[in-house]
Structure formats: structure tokens, C-alpha cells
């Protein structure tokens, strides 16, 4: 199968993820959209590894997975804490990160 199709799929997944981050208010869904983008990137890496015939892309993909797993832990913890204190998981309700 033509590897280019994997890249097209990766672009589609990334676009869906980006649109999700921009459009959805719910923090959990935005979060999942971010994950989607990361996995789109992973797909690209693996595809490129296949195309170039070396393992660099696969190794990077593993790194991304590890970092993403760590990030999910921290991110979910923050979201849960915010939900507990504010009784809302909407990202538009919290704009505390400004002067």
C-alpha cells in the first residue's frame, strides 16, 4: 500500500484534533483532541520510518508515547482539581493564567 495514504490519514487526524482543541469547551474533550494530535504525529513518524527504511521515526514515536503518558497524568490531575474546585470542566471558565 502506498505510504502516502498513511500521511493523509495523519493529516486528517491532526486536523480533527486541532479543530477539537479550538472548538470544544469541555476540558476533557480538548484534552483528548490533543492526544489525537499527538497520535497523528506518531503515525507520521512511523510512516516516515517505513519510508526511509530506518528506525529513527519509531524511536521518536516511543518517546512521544512516554511523554504523552506522563502529560496525561499531570493534565488529568489538573483537570480533576479544577473540576473539584469550580464544579465545571469548561476551559472558557478559567482564565486565571494572566496578570
Amino acid at each position: 500500500m502506498n505510504p502516502t495514504n498513511y500521511l493523509v490519514l495523519s493529516i486528517i487526524l491532526f486536523s480533527i484534533g486541532a479543530a477539537g482543541v479550538l472548538v470544544r469547551r469541555n476540558a476533557l474533550i480538548a484534552f483528548m483532541s490533543v492526544e489525537l494530535m499527538l497520535n497523528a504525529a506518531n503515525l507520521s513518524f512511523v510512516t516516515f520510518a517505513r519510508m526511509h527504511g530506518n528506525l529513527d521515526g519509531q524511536i521518536v514515536a516511543f518517546f512521544v508515547m512516554v511523554v504523552a503518558a506522563a502529560e496525561v497524568v499531570v493534565g488529568l490531575a489538573i483537570i480533576v482539581t479544577i473540576f473539584r474546585t469550580r464544579r465545571s470542566a469548561s476551559v472558557d471558565d478559567a482564565s486565571l493564567l494572566k496578570l
Binding site: A18, V21, L22, A30, V91, D92, A94, S95, L96, K98
Partner: peptide
């Protein structure tokens, strides 16, 4: 410009 809204930063 620094609104504090996550989605605007993302945009």
C-alpha cells in the same frame, strides 16, 4: 493578548 483562555492560546 494574553487573555488567559486556553483556546485562544491554542488558536
Amino acid at each position: 493578548w494574553q487573555t488567559g483562555f486556553v483556546r485562544s492560546y491554542a488558536a
